[in-house]
Simulated assay, not measured.
Amino acid sequence: MQTSKELVDLLDLTALGENNFSGNSYTIGSPHVFGGQVLAQAVNAAYRTIPENRFINSLHSYFLEAGDLTVPINYHVAEMRNGGSFSTRRVTASQNGKTIFIMAASFHIKEDGFEHQTAIDKSIKQPEELMSWEDMLVQFGDFLPKSTKAFLSIKRPIEFKPVRVPNPMEPKDLPANEDVWFRLKGDHKDLDIRTKQEILTYISDYNVLNAAFNSNASAHNFGNTQTASLDHSMWFFREFDFNDWMLFSAESPNAFGARGLAKGNIFTRDGKLVASFAQEGLMRPKK
């Protein structure tokens, strides 16, 4: 999977009737289904039951079981409420009769109101100054740990450029934050806002737990720690296009008891706040 079209096709579920849908999976380098894929497919399922004049404003979800890459995922949508301004849906994802994921999502008509937003960090390095994951693989591939090299070798429809690149050969503790520029590959001029929100949901599960790792990066990493997304929430604010780089900016206020919390914002390059997110993940040191 290397282009935005392939990603859109992955997220576009097959209708089975009576608010039931089915989707397949694509690996991002993990032995299990990528959480962002399940999130985005669940949003696709919910949108299929929503009037055209309503758009997602928030989602709250829990990952209950690891997904099997070889088995289709079934999604059932329960229509919880259709009010004058908001609609609410509950989505349940299952494999082989077992529930692996649940999500509640809210959809809102467009309304006018007062406005403010947090500001983007204008001092942050721009993407033209940074290396992408593909650049790192080419330049440092022979020196990277095997697991890191394998992860970077996976073909993806998104290009990522982290603002800070730690040296895997000399790990050290870092501030508890993570800033990553990202850009969608391929032709994406004709995407509607619903599809763009599904793609943004997919991307939001990348990089997020890095912020929770960084304060203990001298001793702990994805290789010696058992990790999994436990829950994921998003809030959607403003419309946007994928015609330029966007910034994923996360910070971690806490890691304790084998769990790490990260939260943050997604901006357009010109500083428009598009969405916010929060996730708690399992971070259990391997013995």
Score class of each variant (00 low, 15 high):
1 M>K: 04
1 M>D: 12
3 T>H: 09
5 K>V: 05
5 K>T: 07
6 E>A: 00
7 L>A: 06
8 V>G: 01
9 D>T: 12
11 L>T: 09
11 L>N: 06
12 D>H: 13
13 L>C: 01
13 L>T: 03
15 A>H: 02
16 L>W: 05
17 G>N: 01
17 G>L: 05
18 E>C: 05
19 N>T: 02
19 N>Y: 02
23 G>Q: 04
26 Y>L: 03
27 T>G: 04
28 I>W: 04
29 G>A: 05
31 P>E: 08
31 P>V: 06
33 V>G: 02
35 G>T: 02
37 Q>K: 08
37 Q>F: 00
37 Q>R: 07
40 A>F: 04
42 A>I: 01
42 A>E: 08
43 V>R: 00
44 N>I: 09
45 A>C: 01
47 Y>E: 11
48 R>T: 14
50 I>T: 13
51 P>Q: 11
52 E>L: 01
53 N>Y: 01
53 N>C: 03
58 S>P: 08
59 L>F: 05
60 H>W: 05
61 S>F: 09
62 Y>S: 08
63 F>C: 08
64 L>E: 06
65 E>V: 02
67 G>V: 12
67 G>P: 15
69 L>I: 00
71 V>H: 10
72 P>E: 05
75 Y>Q: 03
75 Y>T: 03
80 M>F: 08
82 N>A: 14
84 G>F: 06
85 S>E: 13
86 F>D: 14
86 F>P: 13
86 F>M: 15
87 S>H: 06
88 T>P: 06
89 R>K: 11
89 R>Q: 12
90 R>Q: 14
91 V>M: 10
91 V>D: 08
92 T>R: 08
92 T>H: 11
94 S>T: 13
94 S>Y: 06
96 N>Q: 15
99 T>Q: 12
99 T>C: 03
102 I>R: 10
102 I>L: 10
104 A>N: 12
105 A>V: 01
105 A>C: 14
107 F>V: 11
109 I>D: 08
110 K>T: 07
110 K>S: 05
114 F>I: 02
115 E>K: 12
116 H>G: 02
116 H>I: 05
120 I>A: 11
121 D>C: 05
122 K>D: 14
124 I>Q: 12
125 K>I: 04
128 E>C: 01
128 E>Y: 13
130 L>C: 10
